[in-house]
Structures are given as C-alpha cells and as structure tokens.
C-alpha cells in the first residue's frame, strides 16, 4: 500500500478509472462527514416567502433524488442487443 514491495505507483488504466470515479468518491467523502447538517434557523416568520421558497427548493431536491435513483434502476435493467435475437 505504501509501495513497499516495489509496487509501481500507478498504471494508465488505473488513472482512467480513477478519473471516472473521482467525483463520486468526493461526493461520498463529503456526505460521510456531518458537513451538511444544516442549522434550522427559525428566525423570522415561519411562513415568509423566503422560507416557502427554501421549502419548495428542498422538496424538489428530494424528488430529484427519487427520479435520479429511478433512472439508475431503470438503466440497470437495460439490456440492448447488437443483433436481433430470434
């Protein structure tokens, strides 16, 4: 792991894969740390326009999670063939 048995530093294929996954790895690392614990400030009127806008925005984000997850699940069942199988 630290190059102890003379293992090389990196090979091109590994770099390619890493580039493909670097974003998701970073997202993963960020999400596994409580950075995103938003403070729920109840300052100001509860039903102010700003609060409502924020609520609508976060609701849409949650729905986006559902839609994106669905897209991923649908893609998993995607099974194209090059040639039509009789």
């Amino acid at each position: 792991m630290f190059g102890l048995n003379g293992a090389s530093l990196a090979n091109p294929e590994a770099i390619y894969y890493l580039k493909n996954y670097i974003v998701i790895i970073l997202i993963g690392i960020i999400c596994s740390i409580p950075i995103l614990k938003h403070k729920n400030t109840e300052k100001g009127e509860k039903n102010s326009k700003k609060q409502i806008a924020i609520s609508v925005f976060t609701s849409i984000c949650y729905v986006a999670i559902l839609i994106l997850s669905t897209a991923s699940l649908v893609n998993n069942s995607f099974n194209p063939f090059l040639y039509f199988r009789f």
């Binding site: 493909n20 670097i22 974003v23 897209a71 991923s72």
Partner: peptide, 17 residues
Amino acid sequence: YLKLNSWWEVSVMGKKE
C-alpha cells in the same frame, strides 16, 4: 430515464464511458 441516467453519469459524474 435512460437518457437522464447517462446525463448524470457522463455530464455530472464526469465518466468517460
């Protein structure tokens, strides 16, 4: 959904496949 997934993987996650 398939197009949406490919958008997520390629345009957002930066995958090259």
